Simulated assay, not measured.
Amino acid sequence: MAKILSIEVEASQVRVAEVEVRGKKGRIYNCFCIPAPQGAVEDGQIRDTKTLGENLKAELSQRKIKTKKVYFVTGSTRIASREVRIPFVKANRIQSIVEANATDYFPIDVSKYVLSYSVIDVESQRLEDGKEETKQYHLMVYAAPKAISAAYSEFAENAGLTMTGITYTGDSIYHSVKDEYAKGTHILVKVEYTGTSITVIRDGELTLQRNINYGVDSA
């Protein structure tokens, strides 16, 4: 896999990492933060894509970073999440099943949201006769307002980058620590300037994720 930029945008700063992943191993080539202008980001929504994009472009140029593909991470409280289970199907069918059942997962107008998912686990169940085994996917499904995705796309364009995807901060946290927390119950609290995210992992499985609109600024 070629190098890619992983960028997390918060109300107080933009965190950038230039990484390369080969198999299960990854390498970080550059890692830095730049301050976010006051009011440029609000609850994960980029309000000033032009200024923020130009600032990032200048910083990348100064550091002589030429990588153009970017994957964004956001922790907006406007992103809804729901644990679901679906039949074990081919991987390329998961997204269509999620979209077909979206109205059962979220009490919202799904036409205004971008739906995505993360595989938590593949569960196996043995039938009563003990001879057959069925599998199902255990998923965390996310619904993000299209306005957030559009703003990140504009931000990338203003920074001279190409957006390849966007994910939820809580999902990134879970996948980075699930192997370390394979036993016992653990709670991770990520305190930001205007918000706090809480992740609970039990025996390696995600059991709860919540975002709270209180952070360092409130304290």
Rank of each mutant, 00 (worst) to 15 (best):
I166H: 06
A182S: 14
V177T: 10
E8A: 15
V141Q: 03
I201K: 07
G44M: 03
G53R: 05
G53P: 00
A151P: 04
D203V: 09
I166L: 15
L56S: 02
I34Y: 00
R27E: 11
I201V: 14
T164Y: 09
V141I: 06
T196H: 00
K135S: 13
Y117D: 04
Q136W: 07
D121L: 02
G75D: 09
T51P: 05
T49H: 11
L52G: 08
I201Y: 05
E192M: 10
I201M: 12
L60G: 06
L56F: 04
V19Q: 05
A102H: 08
Q209H: 08
T77E: 06
C31R: 04
L56T: 03
V89Q: 00
R47T: 09
G184I: 11
A151C: 07
I86P: 03
G26Q: 09
D179H: 13
V19G: 03
G75L: 04
E192Q: 15
I187F: 11
I173L: 11
G130S: 07
V19W: 03
A147L: 13
G215I: 13
L5I: 06
S116F: 05
E123P: 02
V14P: 02
L60Q: 05
F106Y: 02
R78A: 09
A156Q: 04
A36W: 01
L139F: 15
A151N: 08
P37C: 14
V21L: 14
Y168G: 05
T164R: 15
R85Q: 12
A100D: 12
R27P: 00
K190Q: 14
E123Y: 08
R202W: 00
G23S: 04
A80K: 10
D179R: 11
I79G: 03
V21G: 09
E123Q: 14
G184Y: 02
I166Y: 04
V73F: 02
V216H: 12
D171I: 10
K25M: 12
V70F: 08
S197A: 01
F32T: 13
Y214H: 15
I28R: 09
Y113S: 00
V16D: 02
R78W: 04
N92G: 13
G184V: 10
C33G: 09
E42Q: 15
I97K: 08
L5D: 03
T185Q: 13
E20Q: 14
T49L: 01
A147Q: 13
